[in-house]
Write a protein that binds this DNA or RNA. Sequence first.
DNA 1: TTATTTTACTCTAATTTGTAGTTTTTATAG
DNA 2: CTATAAAAACTACAAATTAGAGTAAAATAA
Lengths: 109, 109
Amino acid sequence: MSKHRLGEFEELVLLTVAVLYGEAYGIAIIDEMERRLDRTVSIGSLQTVLRRLEKKGYLASELGEVTKVRGGKRKRFFTVTNLGRKALEITKDQRLDLWNSIPNIAFGD
Amino acid sequence: MSKHRLGEFEELVLLTVAVLYGEAYGIAIIDEMERRLDRTVSIGSLQTVLRRLEKKGYLASELGEVTKVRGGKRKRFFTVTNLGRKALEITKDQRLDLWNSIPNIAFGD
DNA sequence: TTATTTTACTCTAATTTGTAGTTTTTATAG
DNA sequence: CTATAAAAACTACAAATTAGAGTAAAATAA
């Protein structure tokens, strides 16, 4: 596997969708990312990445029901697929293996 | 801090330079990355990223001594700077915080 | 029926990453 | 000596990812 790699932003989006399980739609994802990561996230790049991750099979989505809250198109809710979960785990494990292999002196200050 | 973010490949290069402390030059970095990450790494993209990371202050480099091994230009050895270490730590901590916030049901399969 | 709010979506530019090739240097084979 | 091979850095352009700014749709409130 792993012909597809996760870009930096793709990884963060995937993780945030998992964190928001059941409530992961566009604007909620942005709010959560901005709060946790202390950066601004544009709706445009988010949409692009959500589409791409869905196309790659890492995310699935469905439109929500009409609600009685004022305004807005129907929300599109995302969930992480099994394949997406595996991609996240591989990414995490590779990074942690590298961290565990760094000799103490490398950062001795 | 953190106007500069680490791209996916940038992060892996920085970590590998840390792992190879004292022996981190172009071709050794490639060999280490290919072995650990099970992917091919082209010398071209590595050079580009090494330069960019140095420019951003995450890496420092110096030319090695001439050796008596057959052929080759003098090696350029890289080390991770304090700033680079901090960028790596922020990146790692953000990812782990997200992982720790994922509800159990999110991946229930 | 017009304005406001909340949402998704599209398009183009900038940045990052990948690929293929070039240059430099030295040792060894003929 | 000269040609070839080996080991390394470096360059240039193409592809993929990410950012930013703008557009469209749907619903309630005035």
